[in-house]
Amino acid sequence: MSTLKTYTITGTSFEGSLVFKYDLNGSLQSYELDGELNDVQKKWLYNGRFPFNEVGIRTFMSINNFTVHGGELDLSFDHFWDAYAFKVGKKPMAANIWKRMSKADKIAALTGIKPYDAHLRRHLQREKANPTTYLNQRYWENEWNKY
């Protein structure tokens, strides 16, 4: 699980919604269509307007027929707990640490999980740190790609 910004787009010209999910670098990670687009709408969307990066969402924000919802990150402790995927140690202690962290540190901690996990896959003899240790010792600040 990774930290994604989710945008839901609804419009007066089609039934349903478009859902775009971007990583913290603004790269599209998934796209869902709830409903159907007609041929004209498909041509419009896929002819240079498809938002492959988060900046492309601005196109939809500037058109009166569309409403864009979302764009917020899930910085809840439960999201961290699920993303870290090593549910050992004292969950309440980790939750207390998380509660005291700044928004910037929460984002950094969440985005640091993936490189840390990749490092552990390259070094199988190392065990994953408990979530409280990861948070207390700020593991996300290590440059895991160099080890």
Rank of each mutant, 00 (worst) to 15 (best):
Thr59Met: 00
Asp82Cys: 02
Asp74Ser: 14
Leu73Glu: 13
His69Lys: 08
Thr59Leu: 00
Gly89Val: 07
Tyr84Val: 03
Phe60His: 04
Ala95Ser: 12
Glu54Trp: 02
His79Glu: 14
Asn64Gln: 15
Asn65Ile: 11
Pro92Val: 12
Ser62Ile: 02
Asp78Val: 12
Asp82Leu: 09
Asn96Asp: 15
Phe77Trp: 08
Ala94Val: 05
Asn53His: 09
Phe60Asp: 06
Lys87Gly: 07
Val88Asp: 08
Ala85Ser: 13
His69Met: 09
Gly48His: 04
Phe52Gln: 01
Ile57Pro: 00
Ser76Pro: 05
Ile63Trp: 03
Gly89Glu: 05
Pro92Thr: 12
Gly71Trp: 03
Val68Asp: 00
Ala85Trp: 02
Asp78Lys: 06
Ser62Phe: 05
Gly48Leu: 11
Val88Ile: 08
Leu75Ser: 11
Leu73Met: 15
Asn96Ala: 15
Val55Thr: 05
Phe80Ser: 07
Lys91Pro: 08
Asn53Ala: 12
Leu73Asp: 08
Gly71Lys: 05
Arg49His: 15
Thr59Arg: 00
Asp78Trp: 04
Ile57His: 00
Trp81Thr: 11
Thr67Trp: 03
Ala83Ile: 04
Lys87Phe: 04
Ala83Lys: 01
Ile63Cys: 05
Phe86Glu: 06
Asn65Asp: 14
Phe86Gly: 03
Ser76Lys: 02
Gly48Trp: 05
Ser62Arg: 06
Lys87Arg: 10
Ile63Ala: 11
Glu72Ser: 14
Ala85Cys: 05
Ala83Thr: 10
Met93Ile: 13
Val88Arg: 04
Val88Pro: 01
Phe66Tyr: 13
Lys90Glu: 14
Val88Leu: 10
Asn53Phe: 04
Glu54Phe: 02
Ser76Trp: 10
Val55Ser: 01
Gly56Gln: 08
Phe60Ala: 10
Met61Ala: 11
Asn64Asp: 15
Asn47Val: 12
Phe52Glu: 00
Phe80Ala: 10
Val88Met: 07
Asn47Leu: 15
Phe77Pro: 03
Phe80Asp: 06
Asp78Phe: 03
Gly48Arg: 02
Asp78Thr: 14
Phe50Pro: 00
Trp81Tyr: 10
Ser76His: 05
Ala95His: 04
Thr67Met: 07
Lys91Glu: 15
Asp74Arg: 06
Phe52Gly: 00
Gly89Met: 05
Asn64Cys: 14
